[in-house]
Design a protein around this nucleic acid. Structure first.
Length: 633
DNA sequence: GGGAGAGGGCTTTTT
DNA sequence: GCCCTCTCCC
């Protein structure tokens, strides 16, 4: 059995010696410092599979934690392939989902019922506003009040603890206190609570802590540099028995301090666990020589880091291109320059392999304008989670099915929303007909006589379809949502928030000026609903923030706006984190980087438009001259 | 009081 | 570009 398993591990052969060391050093605390493009994910999944296949532990005795659902999904899929099972019970998940799973078992320990609700940001904000009003607190900014409470939770500080360390008459302490009371009364918790409650249970119930400590003989942590104090405490509690904790991360890519991430977790890990073995993954298999050289020199200016240096991992016969830095007149010229370059490059490289990475979201606007003019399709990532909402996805599904009756996925989504007596039995019938005759679900449904509500929905589809481009898009959507009784469903449920969002969607569609098809295509991809898979064959230029680009890679990367004040963004003076952000941007590129900045900016005062000079980013001076070239226009 | 429209200000985002 | 706030009008 064991020898069979070892044969299965042929993927070990493809790892380099450092990666192999990171995989095979299973006992005791291990810190894997994994630079950009050094095969971090491979090490993590290989290590999980190695532990299971060498029978050091059963798969349910290994815990792997990540930050995003996407990372979890990727990791889980790869691990399942490697250990060749379909075990759905793996303990691979986000910090929040694992805590959630634990909390559902033991909610009563902290005074919640097992069916407690989880508040999202909207719910939180609504509650905060309500409390501020109720208690007549003097907070203008409910949002920043919520952010402060969240940061306290990230630091593992309960209302009680905060009242002790802060001035007790301080309003935020009092607000935090009543916010938490309200949550408890509502049988609810927020995202931060998932962790805090879990920690509280671990601390107050030794038997429960023991149970999980015994279960998780091996712990793997992804993106360790992004953990906050609460997450670190949670990990320490779980790992303190077996001490087989392996944290993988890159201190040079720690860019989420404003979200509570503590770079000191990764910097001090080996001090907290003195027996730690550190493995350095420094061979970068992503980028060319010059890009690596530029990025490594830049990040070397930081003082708060584990000393190390990223190295070229690829064979050297690959042609390396210098990092090009361009000075343009102003923002508009800069956007023109980037778009012109893209037009030239797209003749030889797929648009999907190009990316514009900005520091702040409003930089995107200038590029959009020029890209539209040049007729280059682009996709803006991240930002709004608006399109993740259930009601928005439903509404869009209605639009999709009306536009294109063959859209089976959209049809499945809304055929019984609101309820039209189309349950699993009817759907099974429809699917069978569709499958046998190789037709779409809508066409299959037409062959049924019952239920009558379905029949009338199908007639509605036809009627709405005939109205496309006769009435405005907004009118059409309004009509569809009204006549399908979809709006009525939410009215009945008294869901103001959802109705508000639907209104916003109608407004968006109204302002877009697109035809419906174009509108639907412009909708950003979503993790809940894999809309982007539909257009997988279509080519888009990628546009996103530097934060949003972490973990991704492209052939060619544009880094605009490298001016003092923007890159680095001057606000709370966290210069080293800004440098890390620039480093993240540079290391996204496989083949070529274009940095650009503008010489002038325009500022409006009450009467006129004033021209001011920009200073080029101080980071540009920190780049090695042998690997880059500055061009002034 | 609330809905609509205009204008100013703007980190960064996941669960 | 978007969001929030302010104002105006019903």
């Amino acid at each position: 059995m064991l020898s069979d398993n070892i044969k299965q591990m042929s993927w070990l052969d493809s790892l380099n010696s450092e990666q192999l060391l990171a995989v095979k050093t299973t006992e005791g605390p291990v810190l894997v410092l994994s630079g950009a493009g050094t095969g971090k994910t491979r090490v993590l999944t290989s290590r999980f599979a190695y532990i299971v296949l060498t029978e050091l532990a059963k798969s349910q005795n290994v815990l792997a934690v990540t930050f995003t659902k996407k990372a979890t999904q990727e990791m889980r899929d790869r691990i399942l392939l490697m250990i060749n099972t379909k075990d759905e019970q793996l303990w691979v998940g986000t910090f929040h989902s694992i805590c959630h799973r634990i909390l559902r078992q033991h909610a009563r320990c902290i005074g919640l019922n097992n069916d407690f609700a989880i508040y999202d940001t909207n719910d939180q904000l609504r509650l905060i506003k309500q409390i501020i009003k109720e208690k007549k607190f003097d907070f203008k900014e409910s949002k920043s009040a919520l952010e402060m409470i969240q940061l306290l939770k990230d630091r593992n500080i309960t209302p009680k603890m905060y009242e002790e360390i802060a001035n007790s008459i301080e309003d935020i302490a009092s607000l935090y206190h009543s916010y938490q009371n309200h949550l408890n009364i509502l049988n609810a918790c927020d995202f931060g609570d998932l962790l805090l409650h879990c920690i509280t249970i671990f601390k107050n119930y030794q038997d429960i802590l023991n149970e999980y400590q015994n279960q998780f003989q091996y712990i793997l942590v992804d993106e360790y540099q992004d953990t906050n104090l609460a997450q670190n405490e949670w990990l320490n509690l779980l790992a303190s028995k077996h001490r087989n904790i392996c944290c993988v991360g890159d201190d040079d890519q720690s860019i989420y301090s404003w979200r509570g991430a503590e770079i000191t977790n990764i910097l001090n890990f080996n001090k907290n666990y003195p027996e730690t073995k550190i493995v350095y993954l420094e061979k970068n298999y992503r980028s060319t020589k010059d890009i690596i050289n530029v990025a490594a020199d830049l990040i070397d200016n930081n003082t708060q880091r584990h000393p190390k240096r990223m190295q070229l991992g690829k064979s050297t016969d690959e042609i390396s291109a210098i990092v090009d830095i361009y000075q343009l007149r102003d923002e508009s010229e800069e956007a023109n320059f980037v778009v012109n370059k893209i037009e030239a490059i797209k003749k030889t490289t797929k648009l999907n392999e190009l990316a514009i990475l900005v520091r702040v979201r409003y930089q995107i606007y200038k590029f959009e304008e020029k890209l539209k003019k040049a007729n280059i399709s682009y996709k803006i990532f991240g930002g709004l989670s608006f399109y993740d909402h259930q009601e928005i996805l439903d509404a869009l599904a209605y639009l999709r099915v009306v536009l294109n009756p063959d859209d089976d996925r959209a049809f499945e989504r809304i055929v019984n929303v609101p309820s039209r007596e189309v349950g699993t039995v009817t759907m099974r019938k429809i699917r069978t007909i569709a499958y046998n005759q190789n037709i779409s679900l809508v066409n299959a449904a037409r062959q049924l006589n019952k239920p009558s509500q379905l029949k009338s929905l199908l007639l509605d589809f036809d009627r709405w379809h005939s109205l496309i481009s006769i009435i405005s898009n907004a009118e059409l959507l309004k009509k569809i949502l009204g006549e399908s009784k979809y709006l009525a469903m939410w009215y009945r449920k008294n869901s103001e928030e959802r109705l508000k969002n639907l209104k916003k969607l109608i407004k968006n569609i109204d302002n877009s000026g697109d035809n419906i098809k174009a509108f639907l295509e412009r909708i950003p991809p979503s993790m809940n609903d894999k809309l982007h898979e539909i257009d997988n064959d279509k080519e888009y230029l990628n546009i996103m923030t530097l934060h949003g680009a972490k973990g991704l890679e492209f052939d060619v990367v544009f880094l605009p706006g490298w001016e003092e004040g923007k890159v680095p963004l001057i606000r709370d003076n966290n210069l080293e984190e800004e440098r890390r952000l620039a480093y993240v941007g540079l290391t996204r590129a496989r083949k070529k980087v274009y940095i650009s900045y503008s010489k002038y900016k325009y500022v409006y005062n009450d009467y006129e438009c004033i021209q001011l000079s920009n200073q080029p980013s101080r980071f540009i001076k920190e780049l090695p001259s042998e690997s880059c070239r500055i061009t002034r226009r």
